[in-house]
Design a protein around this nucleic acid. Structure first.
Lengths: 198, 198
DNA sequence: ACTAAATTCTTAGAGAGCTAAGATGTTTGC
DNA sequence: GCAAACATCTTAGCTCTCTAAGAATTTAGT
């Protein structure tokens, strides 16, 4: 829909110049952020031709793998907070890609199912994402991609660990149970179930 | 101010689990996005103790290097669009970190200067960013960081090039001048000046 | 010199994300 | 068996970012 024109391209040019000129030491965050923007932008441009937004894509991708999940589960798998999930799914329901329904036996949980329309989008949309990926890593050695992947993973992990430690320190012992959950979660990669019983 | 507590940490755990479990092929974008979130979140948590938001940080960093720039220039250096710059600077002016003023000779351009308050923040804030960076890349080999940096740069570059080519194709020859600018810009990394004269 | 084009700032409105807190249900512990 | 604790969905409201379009001012072409 709103395909980018010159101002955007110019802006991207500015970013590129910027990075080619000076890449000092603390700027990793900035660089990662710009890469994210470039990737999301490329994807968004392609998705918009099918009236799908980035927010929808995030959940569609999860749902194509497995639907019939609750909003909570979807939030976890998509890696976003629940209110984000809530409004995205409301919009997707309006759009006709999913249904939200309660099941007999539990009137609180809401299960999300793809509609035929939502399911059909997969064949159209996945190739677009693959195209973006192909373009993005064109000319980059597979080994370098692997290293990048691992580095990013380490960054996420390091920061997550630090956040937990910092939070614990600030809380001054935030209940043994809470601490245990966290320790377990990071040490063994246990499922969220740890949360519900300790 | 709003220091993260358990829900957040849990969420980060979910993300980590997610990445440890399955890292298929197309998910680079997703991984980069999550790394961005982790980095920005860590920075934001620290900045908020000084009542500085991420949006302000973005511009402060540019201004500490050189102030007296126009909003347009600031947008380019910060890598965001002008309306974003506009509202961030308005807020920063209200906060007392910068002044926005016209100069005799040109009543259109607005020049941004740091106030003493804005200047003083540097000594407090820069160490926080360095701390985040140190934590993030802790345990990652310097060589791997270098490769990651280069890979991300290539990704940005590849996508920018593609966006330009795609846009050109769609426009069906979008005026020779425009095309030239873009070609030149990407080929030689020329300054934005190309824009104003071709 | 004066209109037309280009720049720059501004306004308006939307998307995607977050936190905090409210509502509504379900479980658990006495 | 019921009150308290917990879980899940929802609402409200904020941030950062973008695009599109309007307003003001400067530059350029004839």
């Amino acid at each position: 829909m709103s395909r980018a024109k010159s101002p955007l391209a110019d802006n991207t040019q500015a970013i590129l110049r910027h990075w080619r000129e000076a890449v000092p030491n603390d700027r990793l965050a900035h660089l990662v952020k710009d890469a994210t923007r470039a990737l999301l932008r490329a994807l968004q441009m392609r998705l918009s031709a099918h009236s799908v937004s980035l927010g929808h894509w995030t959940f569609l991708r999860v749902l194509w793998e497995k639907d019939g999940l609750t909003q909570k589960e979807l939030s976890e798998r998509a890696g976003v907070m629940e209110p984000t999930t809530f409004s995205a799914l409301k919009a997707m329901e309006r759009f006709g890609a999913v249904t939200r329904s309660r099941m007999p036996g539990n009137r609180k949980k809401i299960f999300i199912y793809l509609t035929p329309k939502g399911r059909l989008l997969k064949a159209k949309l996945v190739p677009l994402a693959e195209e973006v990926n192909e373009i993005a890593i064109r000319s980059v050695k597979a080994a370098d991609i692997a290293i990048t992947r691992q580095t990013l993973l380490s960054i996420i992990e390091n920061l997550a660990r630090d956040e937990i430690e910092t939070t614990v320190k600030e809380h001054r012992i935030p209940s043994t149970r809470e601490w245990a959950e966290r320790g377990v979660a990071i040490a063994k990669g246990k499922r969220g179930r740890a949360k519900k019983r300790a």
